[in-house]
Structure formats: structure tokens, C-alpha cells
Amino acid sequence: MNAAVLVQLLVSGLAMGFIYALVGIEYTLVWNSTGLLNFSHDKLIMLGAYLFGGTFVLGMGFSNPLAIVLAFVIMGLIGVLIANGIFNPLRTMQSMIFAVMGTMILGRIIKEACRLIWGPAPFAISGWLSGNIRIGKISISNANIIICLVSLLVVIGLQLFLNFTKTGKAMRCVAQNKKAAALMGINVTQNICITTAVSAIICSIIGILIIPLFNVSTTMSNSIGLKGFSAGVIGGFGYLPGAIIGGIIIGIVENLAVMVLPAVYKDVVSFVLLILFLLVKPTGLLGKRA
């Protein structure tokens, strides 16, 4: 095991880590505003990829930027639908199980719908963000570099939005205390709509960016969905920059684990890490609230 290999593993781990980080950010948003987890988020990622690739690029032959914008719009609307159909009616129930199961079942519906609408064949979009960069012996995909940049942009953008706009400030209030926010005249229901829509748009960003890495299929986002949860927990539940730290840690640890363990235990490592953090430090590395 020489230095070049180590660096390569670190770089790839970092690249995967940023994908987990984006997933972490996207669900942390929903968590903050509703106190619920959106278990259909991996399917929303897939839906974003299908909309962009299957319908707008390959189906209608739109240019990439137009396709991206259209995918954002539709995903945003779907986010509003989810908020009004599942989160708002079910969040006040006695147990969170209702809303969480609602999103899980929704995930199944989306998966089946994708198969029925776009057919069962997986596909790729030739030329979209493909290619890679080689520095010495180290290789990294162009898509990975773009994912790193985009996730940083998303975090910065979200922080600006949350701190300097009225809607963003309202979102933070709702995150801290729904009752108080409602008393202060903030429309919590509407707020949840906006948050879920933003989260769905981030899902479609992830979906579009991982097409060159994983192709478009109904199983493309299965593993990153769960690992995104781990990223959020490890970094600090409910704290956006924490998701990035958590994602990077998972990406790197699971890649380096291969040096001591057989590669098939890679996933076990990240889940064990998740459980350990939940037991020992549920607030995560950067989180504040319990």
C-alpha cells in the first residue's frame, strides 16, 4: 500500500463524501422545519434524475440548462405536494410514525411510477459531465469535482438565505420552536411547504449530478439515501455545515476501512459508525441540541 494509493482512496472518499453531504443537507432542511424525516428522499433524487434525463434531455431534446430549470420547477411543485399531502396533515398526529411511514410509502409509489413512466431500462446521458482529471497517478471524475463545488455553493447559498431573507429567518424560527413561531404570526404550514420544496430541488440537484457516476435507474440512489442520514447524524443533526463534515468523514472512513477489512464490509463500517455516534454522541460532532 503506497502513498499514491492512499491519496487516491482519500480523494475518492472525499468525492463520495460530498454526495453524502448533499443528501444530508437536503434532509436536514426538512428535519429542521417539520421535525420529521423524509424517507422518500432517495426516490426524489431518482425522480429528479429521471425528469432531467428521461423527459427533458432525451425525451424532448431540450438543452441542458433549460432541462435543469424545468426539473427544478417540477421537483419544487412535487415538494409542495408532499408538504401539503403528507407533512402538514400528519405532523400533528400523536406519533411521528404516521408522517414517516407516509413518506416511505410515497417512496415506493415514486419507484413504481418511474418504472411505469420511463420503462425498466436503465440509461445514461452520453457526454453529460463525463470525463475525469488525472494528476499524476490520482484520478477524479469531473462530476465529483462539480459535486464538491455545488455542495459548497448550496451550503453558502442556504446560509445566506436563512440569515438574510425574511422567509429564511422565518424558517429558522420554525426550526427552533413551532409554537412560538406560530404565535409570532409566522405561517408554519406555508413555511413547511417552502422548505420541502427547497429540499426537493436539492434532491433533483443531487440526482442530476450523479447521473454520470451511477447512471439513471430505479436503484441508483438506494445506498446514498441511507448514508446521507448517517452523514447528518455524525456531523450534527439539524446543523447544515455539520452534514458536510459528516459526509466527508463517512466517505473517507469507509474507503480507508478497505485497507484493514475485506471490501464487502464497507457498508457495515458506515452503519456501525452511525450506531456508535447515536449511542455515544447523538448530537454529532458539531451539533448543539440533543
Partner: peptide
């Protein structure tokens, strides 16, 4: 590797 894995760099 396991079914569903997405990164085989290691």
C-alpha cells in the same frame, strides 16, 4: 462488493 454499491475505487 455488495449489490447496490456505487464506488469501487478501493
Amino acid at each position: 462488493h455488495n449489490t447496490g454499491d456505487t464506488d469501487f475505487t478501493a
